[in-house]
Design a protein around this nucleic acid. Sequence first.
DNA 1: GGGCGTGCTGTGGTCTGACCACACAGCTTA
DNA 2: TAAGCTGTGTGGTCAGACCACAGCACGCCC
Lengths: 248, 248
Amino acid sequence: MTVDERRAWEIVLAHIEDDLLGGRLKPGDRLPGERALATELGVGRSSVREAIRVLEVLGLVRTNVGSGPTAGAIIVALPGGGMSALMRLQVAAQGFPVADIVKTRLVLETAVAAELADAVLSAALLHPDRRDPDLGRCAQLLDAMDAPGLSEDEFLTLDAAFHLSLAEACGNQVVIATMAGLRSAIEGYVRAGVERLASWPDTSARLRAEHRGILAAIEAADPTGAHDLVHAHISGYYAETRLTPASR
Amino acid sequence: MTVDERRAWEIVLAHIEDDLLGGRLKPGDRLPGERALATELGVGRSSVREAIRVLEVLGLVRTNVGSGPTAGAIIVALPGGGMSALMRLQVAAQGFPVADIVKTRLVLETAVAAELADAVLSAALLHPDRRDPDLGRCAQLLDAMDAPGLSEDEFLTLDAAFHLSLAEACGNQVVIATMAGLRSAIEGYVRAGVERLASWPDTSARLRAEHRGILAAIEAADPTGAHDLVHAHISGYYAETRLTPASR
DNA sequence: GGGCGTGCTGTGGTCTGACCACACAGCTTA
DNA sequence: TAAGCTGTGTGGTCAGACCACAGCACGCCC
């Protein structure tokens, strides 16, 4: 008869985590209803709701109203949203300096590019006839960025998608989610930085050329080249928008 | 008079985020009371509580009951806890494969080690007399790991602290929080992996020697050496505990 | 017999009110 | 002066009520 000193919603959270670890809950499964969970765990429904709200923000469940098989809280395990919310709010609360966000992005994305080039190299040895399939989407995005009359907002959206597509081609879920979070955390700063550019057409053209260069280095199975090009691309852009000096 | 289609707790969350971005809330500040926030935003107190719960899990606020200056929800912006919860739950829900966690850790920690070595190099040029202060804690932890009679659990705790201290010496808040999250996400797997080791004393001795080597390379201002040693250390350990093959 | 509409039912979303434990602050009292 | 007490505001929790919504089964109508 020990007293459970945890708060009620922590009990609910721990119970659900335990079910996940024990395999009693898998992606695609539905959580018990809020009322059922409340009575089962001996807590109030509001406490259950607080726990589910946390899971929802962290990207673990998706809630739907109504009835039928799609209703209720469903395990989805999509880390992107949670990582974005976490990093965005931490930047807002000054827990994450913008400069650190940029540096981390630099580390991760250079590693991603180098690993992609390595993968191309390995694939070429095993299947000399086949072209890497995952890089197709990256190329498509670059083509889309060449469309004339693109607004700055549209360009930046495609730019973000391209960088994310590199991580996706790499296939590492953690890196994908982290990159998405890092990007969304500094989204506002990036868009504000465009205003300070001397010439948007010039910068846009340079960015597109650098993107092509990065993709070319990857497809040429040149890890160090891809690494260095990404490094120059990212640090150069942030230097140009004067993001880092005024950051924090 | 457009209808706000967001859910009530999202309104609260957005309002607080806006206050953070607008500088009306800073670390150390107290949030308005739950009841005040509810009436101010025109929502129920339970919705306010759901939003604050999210902020608490993400590591943005700390709540205290009672009265006085320490009571209420206080902005703290400590990202470690939130990142750990996010990654731990994503691993539990199979959104993050363990192998991807390990790979990400490999990328980040090798970069951290290389950057630290670089920093030592720069510092030596500027202040040839002064030894790097932030590496002192790393060395202390290594000394603690040499203590005889250390249990496996204690050793692993010190091991985790050492690796985290490297990130802390680097000073990048994002990397620190991410590394802490990655570690906690696979904490259970690491402890389980120890059971499968052929000989704990042998492994422990090897790990300690590798730690010394890493720190020595950093203090010798050898970026590539530190990078490679960290790479071998981490990938070697996970290979030995057979963590990666059975993962996911 | 087949198609369609309608109510039933269960879901999450929200609000209200109430009570509790807690911690500080100021007052009262010895 | 010092110890104790009470008031007040805080988050923590619960219970109950109502709403909008979506599916489903029943029954009606053609």
